[in-house]
């Protein structure tokens, strides 16, 4: 099955215009966003993630090029049509504490309701369905002021859902959330994309979750512009290194996380049968300024980790055994 194209951009130029002056943030952008896919937009601070999202949600005009949403140029949309096509979840402060969760989500029906915003049967059905979908139905009668941050974010996602848009844009929806809520929200978004065939694009700094649940990645950087692709293609083509072109940061392809580069003045060779143990052993050594080698070399220090309580260290031809990392590190740093 061929997936429907929801956003397509051709030679798009984004940035700010003040008078006749243009401040270009990015140009020659080409990308597509497909229905049924969750896409994460990653990038360092100040690379223009928000500018891109704002351009896509028509909060600010593009400076040039072509931008089509659902097969129609974005600037040809009327306000009403647009509000039924693009739903957003922002980081902006809201003042809805005195509304119930139900009323808040009901505001999302405004593109569909009449002059006074009265909710009819269909509106109520859609709202209740969305509350079930995001798992906040039990809070329907609570004030939004009483929600936790995670619940509030779910309510805002439900608000975007009841707009019944093919496209949902989210600006850092998991910022300020604890791990449990972060995972919950990402799972929720992935499920909504798949089940409801929505195109969902979100910006995030939560790379860990993005790599796990994102169908596609958009990497945005000053040096390389926008790079798009299936998550695993991006990773295995070694494009993650382009995201933060900083010599002190490297991407660990095995674990999918960024690490500070080790400038070890001391070398040590490490061996272990247990992969987890090896990983954390190297973690401890790296942090303490040792560069780890996997090949045994008689000239340098050598460590054999059999278990977390059996760490054999060979130093100057003398072997010692340590029963914890605390003791091992004490010996090494001495």
């Amino acid at each position: 099955m061929k997936k429907k194209v929801v956003i397509s951009a051709n030679d798009l130029r984004i940035g700010y215009r003040t008078g006749k002056q243009e401040k270009i943030v990015h140009e020659h952008l080409n990308f597509q966003l497909l229905a049924g896919e969750l896409t994460c937009l990653l990038g360092a601070n100040g690379t223009g993630k928000s500018t891109l999202l704002r351009t896509l949600s028509a909060s600010q005009p593009s400076l040039g090029g072509e931008l089509q949403i659902a097969g129609k140029n974005l600037n040809e949309y009327s306000e009403k049509e647009r509000s039924r096509t693009i739903g957003v979840v922002l980081t902006d402060k809201t003042f809805t504490g005195g509304l119930t969760v139900y009323e808040l989500i009901g505001l999302g029906r405004q593109p569909h309701t009449g002059f006074f915003g009265r909710l009819n049967k269909e509106d109520k059905r859609v709202i209740e369905e969305a509350m079930e979908n995001v798992g906040i139905a039990n809070k329907a009668r609570s004030y939004t002021a009483e929600l936790s941050d995670g619940e509030r974010q779910k309510a805002m996602i439900a608000k975007a859902l009841v707009q019944e848009c093919p496209l949902i844009l989210l600006d850092e929806p998991t910022a300020f959330l604890d791990v449990v809520s972060r995972i919950e929200i990402m799972h929720l978004l992935h499920r909504l994309a798949t089940e409801q065939q929505k195109a969902i694009l979100l910006s995030t700094h939560d790379i860990e979750q993005a790599l796990v649940l994102s169908d596609k990645l958009w990497l945005l950087s000053k040096e390389h512009g926008l790079q798009c692709g299936i998550t695993e293609d991006i990773i295995l083509n070694h494009q993650m290194e382009n995201l933060f072109p900083h010599r002190d940061i490297r991407f660990d392809y095995e674990h999918g996380v960024y690490y500070p580069t080790v400038h070890g003045e001391k070398e040590i060779s490490v061996e272990s049968q247990d992969k987890t143990l090896l990983h954390w052993t190297m973690n401890a050594l790296n942090r303490n300024g040792f560069e780890c080698k996997q090949i045994k070399n008689e000239k340098v220090l050598h460590l054999i980790a059999t278990s977390p309580h059996e760490l054999h260290l060979t130093m100057n031809g003398k072997e010692t055994c340590h029963d914890s990392f605390e003791n091992l590190l004490q010996e090494l740093i001495k």
Binding site: E79, T94, T96, L99, Q110, G117
Partner: peptide, 23 residues
């Protein structure tokens, strides 16, 4: 009284209201 609907949308802040079709 005619502005009740956009007033409610404005509780979400200007950008959200704009996204809901409020001019």
């Amino acid at each position: 009284i005619l502005l009740i609907k956009p007033l409610n949308a404005l509780l979400l802040g200007a950008r959200y209201a704009e996204n809901l079709g409020v001019n």
